[in-house]
């Protein structure tokens, strides 16, 4: 099997699954019914994206595994998602900021991945890109509303920004799989994505009257399987039934 292609596909699948899982925690608890629906809708899109990617990763792997084997039967060290997506929901401001930092990658990522020379990835990207256009619009709009809303909302989202900023850059730091994907034309050029993403973030933060911290330190490790303490708990929840009753159909 092509190990890099497998890891490259998994990286993105894991990002989508873990963020979808986190967003799903809001379901039934949102601050406004319409936004409860919006968050569930985005969670649903992300889970859908992860499924297409896991199915493809399983195909690349070629030993008869399924999407569920990949999602439910790997331990934390095999997960390749960035640390950003496993951060807890916190208040609505933190959830929005986390979403915006992810969407501002995800949307441009899929847009570029549409040109992948791997037909499957290109097709997944084409479908997903349409969804992420809406995600990015939604989260950017909420960054504006909260940043330029009331004093309290401004403080909350600024503090979310301070907290999450060190988790923002990991997603554009290239892993071995990222390098291979770019070189062989099945993946994207992360430097190009970074520059588009940076301008989008800058533009939205400025309009929202928010200030990004000056410190450029970035946490990393997710892409190579070294995660925060949160992921173990996420997987304990996610995988409970498959682990407690192995080998069953559900």
């Amino acid at each position: 099997m092509n190990n890099h292609l497998f890891n490259y596909t998994l990286q993105q699948a894991d990002n989508c699954l873990i963020l979808g899982q986190r967003l799903g925690e809001w379901c039934g608890h949102g601050p406004i019914l319409e936004q409860d629906i919006a968050m569930t809708n985005i969670a649903l899109d992300l889970i859908g994206q992860s499924r297409m990617l896991y199915q493809y990763a399983a195909e690349v792997q070629g030993d008869g595994k399924t999407e569920d084997d990949l999602a439910y039967l790997r331990d934390a060290w095999d997960f390749k998602n960035v640390l950003l997506v496993e951060q807890p929901n916190g208040d609505f401001a933190k959830t929005i900021l986390r979403q915006f930092l992810f969407d501002s990658f995800n949307c441009y990522f899929y847009e570029a991945l549409k040109d992948s020379n791997d037909e499957k990835l290109a097709a997944i990207a084409a479908k997903s890109h349409k969804e992420t256009l809406y995600h990015l619009k939604w989260s950017a709009d909420w960054v504006l509303r909260l940043g330029d809303g009331t004093e309290e909302s401004h403080e909350r989202i600024q503090s979310a920004l301070n907290e999450l900023w060190p988790y923002s850059a990991e997603i554009i730091i290239a892993s071995d799989a990222d390098h291979d994907a770019k070189t062989n034309g099945y993946g994207v050029n992360l430097e190009e994505i970074q520059s588009r993403r940076d301008s989008k973030i800058e533009e939205v933060l400025e309009e929202a009257t928010l200030t990004a911290p000056e410190d450029t330190f970035s946490h990393s490790g997710g892409k190579s399987g070294t995660h925060t303490e949160h992921l173990g708990y996420i997987l304990a929840d996610l995988q409970f039934l498959q682990r407690a009753y192995p080998g069953n159909e559900w």
Binding site: G30, P31, I32, Q35, F92, L144, R145, L146, D148, G149, T150, E152, S153, R156
Partner: peptide, 11 residues
């Protein structure tokens, strides 16, 4: 959610 709704109206 009260502060979120207040922020949305203020904005």
């Amino acid at each position: 959610g009260a502060w979120v709704r207040a922020a949305a109206s203020a904005y």
